[in-house]
């Protein structure tokens, strides 16, 4: 979707706070949100792309003004309401109005020993030969769509070169809607000058990881 989250190249956001104290959480409530997000029992039909899409759908003003972990909180809250795990009233009051059934008991602390080392692979078995080869010139498609996608606006319609190939990976656009489909994934290097001719730089690259359906030959 052409949402506020697609920030690459937007201007006017001011300086970066380079003097920020180096610590994992700045406020106790931020740490709680993280811990809750890790510990919560979740329905089988939540996945990383659905989470990302639900975060993208936060009201644009809230997206730009609310802290990162606050956005996590709002996203989990919205997903819970959508999945009938809680109502807005319950989330506002903190009190349950009806018990929830169908979920296993919550993970005990002892589960962390293995959970902290759990690795998720998004690679799937290749089903056909990939269309592009390393070194081939490609162009990112110029159109987007209103659902979840990982082709940033700034790369649309721009020409790049296949830098590397990573096998078939789960396609976020449909995975967010629970359709399990995988496509060839490539790293595509775009010359900085191709993406931002107005910046008048002649060196350097911006590399993006893009699925085959985001690309066309040139």
């Amino acid at each position: 979707m052409d949402g506020i989250h697609d920030l690459g190249g937007r201007e006017g956001f001011g300086p970066i706070n380079v003097d920020e104290k180096e610590e994992p959480f700045h406020e106790p409530w931020e740490a709680r949100v993280f811990g809750i997000a890790r510990a919560i029992s979740r329905p089988d039909d939540w996945n990383i792309d659905w989470f990302r899409h639900c975060r993208e759908l936060i009201d644009p003003i809230d997206y730009l003004t609310r802290a990162y972990f606050d956005q996590w909180l709002m996203t989990y809250a919205a997903m819970m309401v959508n999945s009938s795990m809680a109502t807005v009233e319950e989330l506002a009051s903190g009190y349950s109005q009806a018990p929830l059934s169908g979920f296993p008991p919550p993970l005990p602390p002892s589960a962390i020993t293995t959970a902290k080392k759990a690795v998720t692979s998004y690679q799937r078995e290749a089903t056909v030969k990939p269309q592009f080869e390393v070194g081939q010139l490609v162009r990112a498609i110029s159109s987007g769509h209103s659902g979840h996608t990982r082709l940033p606006g700034y790369a649309r319609g721009r020409g790049g070169i296949i830098e590397s190939y990573h096998g078939f990976h789960v396609l976020p656009d449909v995975n967010a809607m629970l359709i399990p489909r995988a496509e060839p994934l490539y790293t595509v290097a775009f010359k900085h000058a191709e993406l931002w001719p107005e910046e008048q730089s002649d060196r350097g690259f911006v590399c993006l990881d893009l699925w085959e359906s985001y690309l066309e030959p040139r």
Binding site: F25, E27, P28, W29, A31, R32, V33, F34, G35, I36, R38, A39, I40, S41, R66, A67, F69, D70, L73, Y76, A77, M85, A86, E90, L91, A92, S93, G94, Y95, S96, P99, L100, F103, P105, P106, L107, P108, P109, A111, I112
Partner: peptide
Amino acid sequence: PALRVKALESLLIEKELIDPRTVDAWI
């Protein structure tokens, strides 16, 4: 936000969707 998190955590405990000790352990 701190109040929003407090409400969320209380609700999740009551609905048996989290064990607060697991939240502590992740942190």
